[in-house]
């Protein structure tokens, strides 16, 4: 399968299900190099699953995921690990190793893979921590950090090996306005200054439309819309409008499917 030279990741006709529960029917998308691509959609739609499929932690039922021309799911384990050294993922929980301090967390992958001497690793770690504003917190344990700081520390760890792509899993979930602003700024800056490709999975509409270059919207097991943030704001697809406007009722109903209300009230106990 050939790949568009401008895109780093391409997904072709992918289907995925967990047991009998279908998550994706047939989705195709491409993630351009050096840009911030956002994937939005309601909760529980399998946005995190999409990142795990790209990273090769899950295998699709059909279709392909190409990373820089390589089919991620045809790789041997060692090829996959070689690919993963070029990618990085920021987990929703941060996923810092709780038994070692912030400095060692950031240094972890470097010590494991780079083979660099400890004094150079120290410089790299301090530079990464400085970039996220946590150089002063290097000696703290993850449990001593606030949620926003944990995510920033995890971001420093994610960029330690200088990946080509970062997959952000719900980076804004549960953040206060200030740390949200910090994360938005960091994601944009990293993408621009390091020419990183970023994939942001989120349902925080305003933040995402603010930083993304291109947006895919997932719902009903498929991609219902894609385009630049301006194009999406202007679109008149009712499902998309409901999502972007945050309207309580619409194509996605307020009520969980139920029997007729009056009939149920009048029917008494069975």
């Amino acid at each position: 399968m050939t790949q568009n030279p401008n895109s780093l990741v391409e997904i072709h006709n992918m289907a995925f299900s967990r047991g009998s529960h279908v998550i994706y029917e047939n989705i195709s998308l491409s993630i351009p190099k050096g840009k911030v691509t956002a994937i939005m959609g309601p909760s529980g739609i399998g946005k995190t699953t999409l990142l795990k499929l790209i990273a090769g932690q899950l295998t699709p039922d059909q279709g392909k995921v190409l990373f820089d021309g390589t089919d991620v799911h045809q790789c041997s384990r060692s090829q996959l690990f070689a690919l993963r050294k070029r990618m990085s993922m920021l987990f929703q929980s941060g996923a810092l190793f709780t038994d070692i301090n912030v400095f060692d967390n950031v240094a972890f992958a470097l010590r494991e893979h780079s083979g660099l001497p400890e004094d150079i690793i120290r410089h790299i770690v301090l530079m990464k921590l400085e970039a996220v504003g946590l150089r002063g917190a290097a000696k703290l344990m993850p449990s001593e950090l606030s949620g926003g700081m944990q995510r920033r520390a995890a971001l420093a760890r994610a960029i330690a090996l200088e990946p080509e792509i970062i997959l952000y899993d719900e980076p804004f979930a549960g953040q206060d306005p200030i740390s949200m602003g910090v994360l938005v700024k960091l994601i944009r800056e990293l993408s621009d200054t390091l020419n990183l490709t970023s994939v942001v999975v989120s349902h925080d509409v305003e933040e995402v439309l603010g930083i993304a270059d291109y947006v895919y919207v997932l719902a009903d097991k498929r991609i219902i819309a894609h385009g630049t943030p301006e194009e999406l704001r202007a679109a008149d697809n009712p499902q998309l409008k409901q999502f972007i406007g945050g309207e309580p009722d619409g194509p996605v109903p307020f009520h969980y499917p139920a029997a007729d209300y009056k009939k149920e009230l009048l029917s008494g106990l069975d």
Binding site: K52, R84, F91, L161
Partner: peptide, 18 residues
């Protein structure tokens, strides 16, 4: 269990560490 539910095991895998 805690390492798995806080995604520490997944993040090791993502760092290409088995």
């Amino acid at each position: 269990g805690l390492m798995k539910s806080t995604e520490q095991l997944s993040s090791l895998e993502m760092m290409a560490i088995d």
